[in-house]
Structures are given as structure tokens and as C-alpha cells.
Design a protein around this nucleic acid. Structure first.
Length: 130
DNA sequence: GGGCTGACCTACT
DNA sequence: CAGTAGGCCAGCC
């Protein structure tokens, strides 16, 4: 069977639609939470395409007001070179949301959306075990 | 048409 | 902990 023209395979979500999913996933990140590129790609329905997330964010229009600062790499570090404008801006925005940097790194587990409820109940800073 | 780059990830050594 | 290797896909020259 011939695939209908205009419609592509599942691997190619189609041009802007692919970025659209990524933008939507990033916009769905709760306040004060951080996710890595792989997680965003997975939430967007594009497993393994972490790189495309970066490009999508870079090509995202500013009018979108996308919380791009809530996306960091798997090491819990800002993907921008230390000292760069973007890097400082991202760190400032994250700290403004309550994200704590430990030795220039973020605890991806502590600030994951799953733990967001814990921080909302128990508050940040103190990590307690019930 | 081909080849390199990139806001990366995972796994193994 | 650091370094290497493989993967994955869109844009640009």
C-alpha cells in the first residue's frame, strides 16, 4: 500500500508538529521543576530524540514564553557554557523559582515533577523522609 | 546530492 | 569520577 502523500510515517511527526509537541511538553513543566532533554523528548512522544529538543527550544519564538530554563541536561547542569549570558539567565530564572544549585549542579531527583508535591507539602531545603 | 554541526542520551570501560 | 563509543534527527553549507 502506498502511504498517502502529505502524511508521513510515525517516525517523522512532520516538520513543525514535531517541534510543537516538544514546545507543549516544555510548557507543561510545573513551576520550580526541572527536566532533562531526554525526559522532555519522551514526554513529547519522541523517545531518543533529545537533540531535537535543544533545536526546538533554540528555534522557539520568544512570544511563546516557553519555560526553556526548566530544561537542563542529564547531568543536572546547564548546557550553556559557564559565564555565558544564556547560562547566567537560566540559572537566575531557576533560582528565582526555588531551584537550588549544588556545586553548579541540580539534583534532578529532588526537583523532578514527582517530588514537586513533596516540596509543596514539606517545603524545599529540607529533605525529610516520612 | 553529501557532509558537518548541534541548548543531547545511554551504556560500557 | 572521567573518557570513549554509538545512536538519533533537523538545518545549513
Amino acid at each position: 500500500m502506498s502511504p498517502p502523500s502529505g502524511k508521513k510515517t510515525e517516525r517523522t511527526p512532520s516538520d513543525a508538529d514535531g517541534y510543537r509537541r516538544i514546545w507543549d511538553a516544555v510548557a507543561a513543566i510545573p513551576y520550580g521543576c526541572v527536566l532533562n532533554y531526554g525526559a522532555v523528548a519522551r514526554l513529547a512522544g519522541l523517545p531518543g530524540r533529545a537533540r531535537m529538543v535543544g533545536q526546538a527550544l533554540g528555534r522557539a519564538p520568544k512570544k511563546m514564553q516557553l519555560p526553556w530554563h526548566r530544561v537542563v541536561n542529564a547531568q543536572g547542569r546547564i548546557s550553556f557554557p559557564a559565564g555565558s549570558s544564556k547560562g547566567k539567565t537560566q540559572r537566575r530564572l531557576l533560582e528565582a523559582e526555588g531551584v537550588v544549585f549544588e556545586d553548579g549542579r541540580i539534583d534532578m531527583v529532588r526537583f523532578s515533577p514527582e517530588r514537586a508535591i513533596d516540596r509543596m507539602l514539606w517545603g524545599p531545603g529540607e529533605e525529610k523522609e516520612p
